[in-house]
Simulated assay, not measured.
Amino acid sequence: MEIQHDSTENKGEFYIQKDGERIAEMTYSKAGENKIIIDHTEVFDSGRGKGYGKKLVKHGVEFARENNLKVLPLCSFAKSVIMNNDDLKDVL
């Protein structure tokens, strides 16, 4: 599954599609020059149980690292994934 990314000046999203249908998404807002706020993660019924939510969060962390950004995970799922993985906490 390829994770896709769209962004505007103030917001962005990572998402996974299968057969033209969106099956998972994670949205964020930009907070200044050096921070993103993950505000929502959702896996739709057709994608449940496959680990797509965690993949999106990990991809968001990689994006933050590559762009020298910090992450504020307001989404409870994203916060749980990051807080339960020591190798992801460096972006907090």
Results as ranks from 00 to 15, higher is better:
70 K>F: 02
55 K>R: 06
45 D>Y: 12
15 Y>H: 11
67 N>M: 00
32 G>M: 08
13 E>Q: 15
40 H>C: 08
51 G>K: 09
16 I>C: 02
61 V>F: 09
48 R>Y: 08
54 K>Q: 13
7 S>A: 07
3 I>F: 07
16 I>L: 11
75 C>E: 01
77 F>E: 11
71 V>G: 07
12 G>A: 12
51 G>F: 13
24 A>D: 06
53 G>Y: 07
4 Q>P: 04
62 E>K: 04
28 Y>F: 14
3 I>Q: 02
29 S>A: 10
8 T>S: 10
46 S>C: 05
73 P>E: 05
36 I>W: 00
53 G>D: 15
49 G>T: 12
73 P>T: 03
50 K>W: 06
29 S>Q: 12
36 I>V: 12
12 G>D: 07
67 N>G: 13
47 G>N: 13
77 F>K: 02
69 L>F: 01
61 V>C: 08
35 K>Y: 00
64 A>H: 02
13 E>T: 09
11 K>Y: 08
76 S>A: 08
29 S>T: 13
43 V>N: 01
39 D>P: 04
73 P>A: 06
16 I>Y: 04
77 F>Q: 03
5 H>N: 10
46 S>T: 08
28 Y>M: 04
35 K>Q: 12
20 G>M: 10
6 D>K: 11
37 I>N: 11
8 T>Y: 07
30 K>M: 09
74 L>D: 07
14 F>E: 01
4 Q>L: 12
5 H>F: 15
14 F>S: 01
68 N>S: 12
62 E>V: 12
23 I>C: 01
5 H>L: 07
59 H>G: 02
70 K>P: 13
21 E>D: 05
9 E>S: 09
69 L>E: 14
6 D>R: 11
33 E>G: 05
61 V>I: 02
72 L>A: 03
3 I>R: 04
58 K>Y: 06
33 E>L: 14
37 I>H: 03
7 S>C: 14
48 R>C: 02
10 N>V: 13
15 Y>G: 00
72 L>I: 11
19 D>K: 05
68 N>L: 05
19 D>M: 13
12 G>N: 03
17 Q>M: 15
27 T>Y: 11
50 K>G: 00
19 D>A: 14
41 T>Q: 05
8 T>H: 02
8 T>V: 12
23 I>P: 00
57 V>P: 12
20 G>V: 12
25 E>R: 06
14 F>Y: 06
10 N>R: 10
43 V>E: 13
67 N>Q: 02
6 D>V: 14
21 E>C: 02
58 K>W: 06
76 S>D: 15
67 N>Y: 10
14 F>R: 02
57 V>I: 01
64 A>K: 02
67 N>A: 03
15 Y>M: 07
28 Y>A: 06
72 L>E: 14
59 H>A: 13
71 V>L: 01
40 H>G: 03
15 Y>C: 02
45 D>K: 07
8 T>C: 09
71 V>S: 10
60 G>N: 15
45 D>R: 03
74 L>T: 11
73 P>G: 10
63 F>V: 02
14 F>Q: 01
42 E>H: 06
53 G>S: 04
34 N>S: 15
22 R>C: 08
56 L>A: 08
73 P>D: 04
70 K>L: 14
7 S>W: 08
69 L>A: 11
71 V>R: 05
41 T>F: 11
35 K>E: 15
71 V>A: 09
4 Q>V: 06
23 I>G: 00
13 E>L: 13
48 R>A: 05
32 G>Q: 04
16 I>R: 03
61 V>L: 04
